[in-house]
Design a protein around this nucleic acid. Structure first.
Length: 703
RNA sequence: GCGCCCGUAGCUCAGUUGGAUAGAGCGUCUGGCUACGAACCAGAAGGCCGGGUGUUCGAGUCACCCCGGGCGCACCA
């Protein structure tokens, strides 16, 4: 999956450039700095911003603009001088004192010209004419051309708000994530899925992309059936009794089901003779008749609510919940089946071990069974139908009703089979990302193969399995949870989370623990603040820590979950970012508390003043880093790697923390320098807050 | 058996698509709080990038072969 997926990303994002500026950043001065909540209104969100279609999206493309200029100039010069149409990328030098950009073109030319790269580099460096925004070139190393920017012009460009409007994209991208079976509480593995998916969505929206977030609900599957069977056969509870249980505020229903599911799974395992319960339950659910079917609906609906609440704590919202029950009732599969048969994407096997089944050829020697010999469809088959619907290729649609309105105004819809309900506004994506863990790669390949088999090559190319590795438990974590490990498991580097065995860290428990720990820190530092305010700050810190922890790993690395690491607020963590932003704000707040006002930067900071101040390497490095927020998100999008955004944010915060320690801003006596430092501090603050918002991390009022 | 992923500092992980002297956090050791709050900063020690052979100006990165670990390969979802 790795290779082809990378290619997808490269093809998708190569031409796009820009990231949203939080417009409120511009309005900030007029609001005054006493109300931080005003200029970070979406501590958790940003979703509504992405949803509103008319928003003008502004960016600071100064670096990118110069980059393009440099590339163009070298490309043209090389063409004229050597007659070569050379493809090359602008790189970032290894060390900051080498300059801001590096052109490696001489290495590539060396091969074609049969000359030493060093020689070519010196030729290029001395012959290339002046480029706007560039102060100097020099040949260095074995053949690099290092480029130093005109710092005064650069700073003036940022201050002047040279901005562009991101090209509004008409196409809609569908991102499907979360997809938790609605039969038990969410655990850390689900949190990784949702956080990755949500952050990817924020990255796309930051770039001005239209995105639809789907959270598929398998409310008729085996997992729900097992819990329904648990209530019915093991606990002998009626639907009415379960209803009462759900309504009981003393019971955490999703936790209750967590245990019941583990018990029922164990029972099935120990009592193979009870297997008919399972199929009886599934049949009842499909037929929609009887107490047990009602039980299943009650369980699924109640747990979906719990999951939505859990995810909202993390700032994760959805646009639509496509449900398996409607896929069933509206007979999506029947339509897909006809298509697959008509276009010969599947065939009826008449012999061998798959005799009597409809099989998709190609992926393995025996092919993949899509329809069983008893005529029922497998999970992948239904998934193919769902994928077809996402692209608008099924020839069928759901009906929809509004499910809830989020506190930030966003609307969540759910599918229904009621023909009098609304229709038409979902699906029809031009590109689809399925955030699903790496263990399901094979099945995702089958889905894509299904599209190809139907002749939908283009859509197959635009179906991306946004895969990630699982979250497992470290041995120490198991010990802390009191999980007894077998001798075999103890030898392993980590233990897989298992809902079936009830083995795992529940999402809400983890968040509660994080909040409690953050609360201790906040209480010890800000005993004077109102309790509910401290609670809010602690929550933001906890969520920031959690989201950052889940995002800092690249997708294909297994996370061996460890409480000590996840609960850390120091070093490479979310709170570190928040702390840097809070400090930048405090500088600006203190200024006002001293009775001073924020200067009119544009009036006081001439280009010459910028150039003077930016001679300081320390100042220049902070400003340069802060100005690259857009391209950091851009690069992360190209790589399909939210972790890259996290890394950039951390490095930016680090640069500022370093600066903060070395220089005093409000006590600076030189007027020009003070104005410059204030401007830089504010610019940093805005850029870090924007980047944190892309990560779904809010900035607390204080820390 | 076949396929995919991983192996980088004591630990947990980055490494900008093949570039310059391989980085960060934690941990260890040393130093720094007078509110722009130390949830921080500075410094030190710490590396055969699992091993080997290739490809080329250049390899942690690409190819092939080993070694070690993980995950898939159901008429389960």
């Amino acid at each position: 999956m790795g290779l082809s997926e990378t290619r997808h990303f490269a093809a998708t994002h190569a031409q796009t450039v820009h990231l949203a500026e939080d417009r409120l950043g511009f309005a900030w001065y007029s609001f005054g700095i006493r109300h931080p909540a005003v200029f970070t209104p979406r501590a958790r969100g940003g979703c509504a911003q992405g949803r509103s279609p008319g928003l003008v999206i502004l960016v600071f493309p100064v670096f990118h603009t110069i980059e393009k200029r440099v590339h163009g100039a070298f490309h043209a010069h090389i063409q004229v001088r050597y007659g070569v149409d050379l493809a090359f990328a602008i790189e970032q030098p290894r060390q900051s004192d080498f300059g801001e950009m590096a052109v490696p073109a001489a290495f590539q030319l060396a091969k074609q010209l049969r000359q030493a790269p060093k020689k070519i580099a010196s030729e290029l460096a001395s012959e290339i004419g002046p480029i706007e925004g560039v102060a100097a070139y020099e040949a260095a190393g074995n053949g690099y051309i290092n480029i130093r920017l005109d710092r005064g012009a650069y700073g003036a460009g940022l201050l002047g708000g040279e901005s562009e409007e991101a090209a509004a994209s008409g196409e809609k991208i569908i991102v499907e994530h979360t997809n938790i079976n609605p039969n038990k509480a969410a655990h850390i593995g689900h949190l990784r899925n949702a956080t990755l998916g949500d952050t990817f969505v924020r990255m796309l929206r930051a770039r001005g992309q239209r995105v639809e977030v789907q959270n598929y609900i398998d409310n008729t599957g085996v997992q729900v059936a097992d819990v329904a069977a648990g209530f019915h056969y093991l606990e002998r509870k009626s639907a009415a009794e379960v209803k009462a249980l759900i309504a009981d505020p003393a019971v955490r229903f999703d936790y209750y089901c967590w245990d019941l599911y583990a018990r029922m799974s164990a029972y099935y395992h120990d009592h193979p003779e009870s297997a008919p319960w399972r199929s009886a339950t599934l049949h009842a659910i499909e037929a929609g008749e009887g107490d047990i079917a009602e039980l299943a609906h009650l369980v699924a609906d109640a747990i979906v609510e719990k999951h939505l609440a859990t995810m909202l704590r993390l700032g994760v919202e959805y646009d639509v919940l496509p449900r398996e029950s409607e896929i069933l009732h509206l007979q999506f599969w029947a339509s897909a089946f006809e298509l697959l048969k008509d276009r010969k994407a599947i065939y009826f096997e008449t012999e061998g071990k798959n005799k009597g089944c409809w099989v998709m050829p190609g992926l393995s020697e025996e092919g993949k069974v899509i329809v069983r010999s008893d005529g029922t469809v497998t999970y992948v088959g239904k998934d193919i139908a769902y994928q077809l619907w996402k692209f608008g290729l099924l020839g069928k649609d759901f009906f929809y009703r509004r499910f809830k309105t989020y506190p930030d105004g966003g609307e969540l819809w759910v599918t229904t089979d009621d023909p009098s309900a609304e229709r038409g506004q979902f699906g029809h994506g031009s590109r689809v990302y399925n955030v699903i863990d790496a263990r399901q790669s094979y099945l995702q390949d089958v889905v894509v193969a299904g599209l190809r088999g139907l002749g939908y090559e283009e859509q197959a190319d635009r179906s991306v399995h946004f895969s990630y590795e699982m979250v497992a438990l470290s041995p120490r974590c198991c010990a802390e949870l009191g999980i007894a490990l077998s001798e075999e498991d103890r030898q392993r580097p980590y233990v897989e989370v298992s809902g079936r065995k009830g083995l795992g860290v529940k999402a809400d428990d983890l968040m509660d623990t994080l909040i409690a720990k953050a609360q201790e820190e906040v209480d010890s530092r800000h005993a004077e603040s109102a309790p509910e305010e401290r609670r809010r700050v602690a929550t933001q810190i906890a969520i920031g820590a959690l989201r950052y922890f889940l995002l800092k790993f690249t997708r294909n690395s297994v996370i061996a979950f460890d409480f000590q690491e996840a609960l850390s607020f120091e070093g490479d963590t979310g709170p570190y970012l928040q702390y840097a932003a809070v400090r930048a704000r405090n500088i600006l707040r203190k200024l006002e508390e001293r009775g001073e006002r924020l200067p009119d930067f544009a009036a006081e900071l001439s280009r010459e003043a910028m150039a003077r101040q930016l001679q300081s390497e320390d100042f220049w490095q902070v400003l340069l880093a802060a100005s690259k927020a857009d391209s950091a998100v851009e690069r992360a999008l190209t790589a399909g790697e939210p972790a890259h955004v996290a890394r950039y944010a951390f490095q930016l915060a680090q640069a500022f923390s370093n600066f903060y320690h070395q220089y005093s801003v409000i006590h600076e006596e030189n007027r020009e320098k003070k104005v410059f430092l204030l401007w830089m501090t504010d610019f940093f603050r805005r850029q870090l807050e924007r980047t944190a918002a892309v990560l779904g991390i809010g900035i607390p009022e204080y820390m």
